[in-house]
Design a protein around this nucleic acid. Structure first.
Lengths: 233, 233
DNA sequence: CCTTGTCAAGAGCGGTGCTCTCATTTGTTG
DNA sequence: CAACAAATGAGAGCACCGCTCTTGACAAGG
């Protein structure tokens, strides 16, 4: 894509800035991300960075997309490693991939799913595509299982409030889904529950010594969530 | 408690600092909490604040306990407004109280349940008592329902991994619980799922226009979670 | 060659947490 | 009541932050 040598050098510098920013983010957290520190690591004076990145918020946006995509790649890879017919297996692979990535990259996970950075509003246009990959993957698994007739009906369903139906219908129409709205509502709960469980572990909400068998705790939760959408009996 | 006039004045000043800190926290977020700004509002030079609060982290700890207690009070009040026999009603009241408080105080909720503040480690000794009030309340509701024989057995249970049993047994013994470990494991999932759902809404993880009927979405989730521990049929 | 555009450097502004010194206030005690 | 000691507030200062502006060096293209 970059044609002139200038453009090539420029793209390389931006890539370096993102790489260094990612390292700072991973080791010190989002709030501690400092353009000056990135500039120091880049071997350049602080003001020079502003030639490549408008401000701290834009660097944050770049890192946000970067993290969303890395998580999305990890999830896609894990899901596709499971046979398409094994819907429950694919769901659990998705969950494990999210948890593994989150535990591996706690600060970046926190940027994506933790408290919003004060004063920073992610520009929707540049983040939605990457930010919706995981939930679309989850919906894809559910939809495939439903179309294949592989969903149990023993899942505990609650009556969908009438005011909620239009929202669910919109989603079904926009994505061309066959899954009924009740299942979609349960899917939303599974979605938020998955990230709730992972966040509790990553953010240290469990006490230090409440749960020592955290892998098994997560596996149990994953199994219950799978039942919740009928992926398992 | 404070006897001498000096101690009274000192306690009052500390209370003022916490109050101003809470206001800054609520309006600008945790990362933007500034001792200098608090000092300005207090009408005092910045260094004077250090006479009352060791550093920024200690103020953060005070605000953490303050927020945990306010949330705990809100939950207790909501739960106790429901007849003790109505276990499902108490559970839903707890959930709604958490969500209402979180939506009312998003920045303080973020401090409690969002990404940890970089470089800040909450001193366990000063925060656990207040920080465990909600989960203890949830466990209390479950335990009361179980002892009263008011739990349905139709809840979807997954087999508890053997490595997880010791953790659950420890909890059962320390709290003197009668609920079986399988139910306790589901309770843990309900706990994290509740906060996962609330966090998604408070932190803006749902797209801006994905769900418009958010009250109803939450009510639906609450109903499914109630079924998950057998509080409802 | 020489203009034009790109870039790094440096100074500077206002903000932050935190420490230190110094003067002053204030409560207690002889 | 006066003297003393503790508590307190003010101020300067250090190192850091995001960000802006000006200046001078440099390379690409006409």
């Amino acid at each position: 894509m970059p044609r002139t040598p200038r453009e090539r050098a420029r793209a390389q510098t931006v890539a370096d800035i993102v790489r260094l920013g990612r390292e700072h983010l991973a080791s010190h957290g989002a709030a501690a991300l400092s353009l000056r520190a990135v500039a120091r690591d880049l071997g350049v004076v602080s003001s020079a960075v502003y030639r490549y990145v408008a401000n701290r918020d834009e660097l944050l946006t770049l890192l946000l997309v970067d993290a969303y995509d890395e998580l999305g790649d990890a999830v896609d890879m894990a899901v596709e490693a499971v046979p398409p017919r094994d819907h429950a297996g694919r769901f659990k692979a998705l969950g494990r991939a999210v948890r593994d990535w989150a535990l591996r990259e706690p600060a970046r996970y926190g940027l994506l799913f933790g408290s919003p950075v004060p004063g920073y509003q992610a520009p929707a246009g540049r983040t939605t595509t990457s930010g919706t990959r995981v939930v679309y993957s989850l919906i894809g698994i559910l939809e495939a299982a439903y179309r294949a007739g592989g969903l149990m009906t023993a899942a505990p369903t609650a009556v969908v409030p009438s005011a909620l139906s239009p929202d669910l219908e919109t989603i079904r129409n926009e994505l061309g889904l066959a899954v009924p709205e009740g299942l979609l509502a349960n899917g939303a709960l599974v979605w938020t529950s998955l990230f709730g469980t992972v966040s509790f572990e990553v953010f240290g909400q469990y006490g230090a010594d409440t749960f020592s068998a955290r892998d098994e705790l997560f596996e149990h939760h994953l199994a219950v969530l799978a039942k919740l959408v009928g992926l398992e009996a």
